[in-house]
Design a protein around this nucleic acid. Sequence first.
RNA 1: GCGCUUGUGGCGAAAUUGGUAGACGCGCCAGACUUAGGAUCUGGUGGUUUCGGCCGUGUAGGUUCGAGUCCUAUCAGGCGCACCA
Length: 946
Amino acid sequence: MEYNFKEIEKRWQQTWAAEQTYHVTEDPSRPKFYVLNMFPYPSGAGLHVGHPLGYIASDIYARYKRLRGFNVLNPMGYDAYGLPAEQYAIQTGQHPAVTTARNIDRYREQLDKIGFSFDWDREVRTCDPSYYHWTQWAFERMFASYYDNRLAQARPIRELEEAFATGGTAGVDAACSEELSFTAAEWEAMDWKRRQETLMNYRIAYLGETMVNWCPKLGTVLANDEVVDGVSERGGYPVVQKRMRQWCLRVSAYAQRLLDGLERIDWTDSLKETQRNWIGRSEGTEMEFRVKDSDVRLTIFTTRADTIFGVTFMVLAPESELVGQLTQPAQRAEVEAYLEATKKRTERERIADRRVTGVFTGSYAINPFTGESIPVWVSDYVLAGYGTGAIMAVPAHDSRDYAFARHFGLPVVPLIEGADVTQESFDAKEGTVMNSPRAGVEALDGFSLNGLEVKDAIAATKRFVTEHGLGRVKVNYRLRDAIFSRQRYWGEPFPVYYKEGMPQMIPEECLPLELPEVTKFLPTESGEPPLGNAQQWAWDTAARRVTDKARIDNVTVFPLELNTMPGFAGSSAYYLRYMDPHDDKALVSPEADRYWQAVDLYIGGSEHATGHLIYSRFWDKFLFDIGVSCADEPFLKLINQGMIQGRSNFVYRIKDTNTFVSAGLKDGYDVTPLHVDVNLVQNDVLDVEAFKAWRPEYADAQFVLEDGKYVCGWAVEKMSKSMYNVVNPDTIVERYGADTLRLYEMFLGPINQSKPWDSNGIDGCHRFLRRAWNLYFRKDGAPAVTDEAPSRESLKSLHKLIRKVTEDIEAFSYNTSVAAFMIAVGELAQQKCTSRAVLEPLAILLAPFAPHIAEELWHRMGHATTVCDAEWPAWDEQYLKEDTVTLSVSFNGKTRFTLDLPADAPREEIERAALSAEQTRKYTDGFQIVKVIVVPRKIVNIVLKK
RNA sequence: GCGCUUGUGGCGAAAUUGGUAGACGCGCCAGACUUAGGAUCUGGUGGUUUCGGCCGUGUAGGUUCGAGUCCUAUCAGGCGCACCA
């Protein structure tokens, strides 16, 4: 009987769909397990073989867990909002909703062919109103919340209003954009608008005037993680810094919790480290410097408070508002020219060209410890967005300050004994402090750090600063608030209208606020975002619905927000929605949430480390605070699947001809290597006829063959259309079947490693499946499975396999379990094993990896129910025991001969046998036996000495 | 510059965690069956060898009876962060 994978796979896929085999419901009688893949953005190019890698790995685990009695949630959906569909819409006029739906259909078709155990009933699409209803809802809750630093928790903004009314800002410790200070009376005196503005300073979702990454080409702002090397991640367009009023999320309030949470989750060290880096916690001191002849106080942040005696100048960021106040008339022209020049430089230019630039303001700060005057400069090496936007410069012990001091001829005062600062600064935080203060300089209260170790000097300075009211100990984070608006069409609309210029939320019960139709996807002529083109885009507060813009009277009808939300909005809480995808009363019902808790296993690429995986953790912590999610970490275990790279093929054209030379002969000619579509190549041999048909210019191509074949060259490159190395999973499924594809993707190597797709090895996996199939049938096609008792040998093969596969799946080492299958099937074939007692468990073991063939074999063995509900077999140690064991006998670590002994021989007997073996005499002759080391069942090592 | 990570045959990779390095697959070689093979099956396949062995896990040391595995130094690749004070 032939292994007809096409027929088998098609039939079972239909059956599973018809019988809802993978439909899952909350079942408190069974333990739950939640497996999740990062949902894909449905691009127009469809899936290539790299995409399903993670899906297959998680599907194997999901099926395995189900076989072990778990109630497994394994959902799939689409991250459907995104720039490519919109860019395509701008070019072609095709509505993004149309292209997105088409791409989703294509993805679904491709996914269905691979035989996943997804519960499609729980599918979500971020662009569905029923889905983004809850994205908008979460945003509204963030707007209505502030972060209480003392409780380390989000609280209703109402509580803050009450606190302001009773005591002003005194006693309030809340995360904010700007430290404010007012009394209850001042709060009471504020009008509605003023209060709204004040509250905005505290809201978790807030409208903020900030420096943003503006991408003129895309016509939108971008989050920090969407900017790579000063250009946009999508498209690679230049990005400039621009001050704009934008929606932001106060992610920074959660910095410490995001950091602490990493301790409790099972992620790779490298990923946790990446997040720690991104959060960038830095413990230091904030110190105040008075300015000579001015009321201005300069606050700076430093991690090296101990270097206070080496401060020889101060530097302000060009964007700092203090620049204007501190610039003296004599320096005004120069400073303004500098600010102008800095503004013109893009982020990219600043990174590419690290010239030392700066300008003196004419003002002098006063060192709070010594009273010395210190010149205040402006330079773009100080960033406005970090710390206070001002620094104390210690050129002797900071390389950037050093470069600046050398360039402008400012003094360098070394503070560490033995540090040579004639050529470069001494940045290390070690050594003994000196010159603190210098001889002859009197410090405040006789303070001195001389003779202390740097570590102790930092602590001593912190203590002194706090005690003398010169500043405070402060923790800074690199993590910035997330900019949450995009000037694009294809995204979630904000449920926001504007009254007196202040944003108002649309009532929760009126959600979702649906994305309006527009005629054009480009910004309006007046520079408004694309939603400015929508006619039906105003909010009627009386009728509580969207209405025509023309009716705006700012009395009952108000303009709606024109920005839309960024890509990460929809992907931040989708794992919660899968728990309860059809609920129209809540994002997730408490029952469903309590049952599924959190994602037990999350699989996806590490490229989301500083984007989605931060935002999602933030979003979840917020939902945890307001009691919607019961888990404060959303993804308990995370595995990063490696990228599948492309394996490109090349043909070699002899220059100025249409003749192509086979790879082995190309060195004899002057050739140009050209990418050739890998689908025209099999095992590196070119299908010459297909090649001729590929492109008109190759129709009359000539070939120089080797051994009658045209052999192509190859290289590992990114899988992309332009390299002609994209391998489509459908092609593989068509040729070998889904089970072979699944097996082969896993066999390729460890899932967390990047590796090139190489179709060359796939035959091996396909052969394995055929051999497995052949175990179950006789040559004439009749079923071979019998009720005979299995041989001990066969049981040993089976139980060895059960143990190996079970342990490997638990360790996500799928490539080695596939190898174990190959060995076991080979052994069983050799043993001519036909016993049901062996072949049935074998089919179950195979089910997670190759579900179609397993299901088919299971049914052919007479089972009416699906193999998915079978019970995972357990191994029995008694079959794994050996009767005899072959020991290696080594002398001084070198193996010389082997010895067969009963497996249960005690240590003494092994030792005796080794010493009395006749070969032993040969090696011990003339030596003294120092000791004998017995590694039971493995090695006897005899240590010799002359 | 800082952090993380990986170096093993012609290739993808294994190695029970300190115990016979290279499982399994590809490729290659030989054979069988075939008019034929890009089909199938069987056997072989790290290097070297005077056929006793000897040498082999990026490089150089160290610990150990014994090191791919542990320690020290060093080189190379990949990823992340990067005027973050």
